[in-house]
Structures are given as C-alpha cells and as structure tokens.
Amino acid sequence: MSLLTRLFGEKKKTAAIAKERLQLIIAREHIDGKSSPDFLPALQKELLGVISKYVKIAPEDIKVQLERQDNIEILEVNIVLSETASPPAPQ
C-alpha cells in the first residue's frame, strides 16, 4: 500500500496540514494578543488634553480604537462634541 501510494501520488501529508494550520492560528493569536496596544490609553489622554484646550469635552467622549481588517490596521478616533460644548476658541 505504501509503495502504491508512493507510485501513484497521494493525498497531502498530515504533517504539512498541521504546519499550515499552526502558521495561521499562531499568526492570528499574535495579532489578537496585541489588539489593544499599550499606547491607546495614553493617546486618548493626550488627545483629551489637546482638545480640552479648545472645546469642553468629557473623557468618555473620545474613543480610540485600533481595528484590523486582513492586513490593514485602522486607527479609529471618535470624538463626540456634545450640544452644550462651549464654542470653539476664536481662530
């Protein structure tokens, strides 16, 4: 049987399948592990500081998150200005 399969070709070896699956899952888990990089809270705090110079804003009005789609990273910064926010500083 091993001779026949050797002569007439055979299915993909299971070790190769194992390696492929591991390459994918390990790469994905490495990305997941870093899905919330350390700098995001600091970035949010600094943005808050800068924006507060011009507009009255609460910490929860700034949302910073990093998203990944395939190979692209998107840094999303969402700043909500409430209706009662003081008018922007004069130009």
Binding site: K13, T14, A15, A16, A18, K19, L22, Q23, I26
Partner: peptide, 16 residues
C-alpha cells in the same frame, strides 16, 4: 513518522 510526513519535524516546530 516525520520522514513519512505524519509528524511535524523539529525544523517545522522551530520555524513556528
């Protein structure tokens, strides 16, 4: 078993 393609080789594991 590595030779027969049934087991990850040490090189595969090291690469991973």
């Amino acid at each position: 078993r590595v030779e027969e393609g049934e087991m990850l080789s040490y090189k595969d594991i090291q690469e991973l």
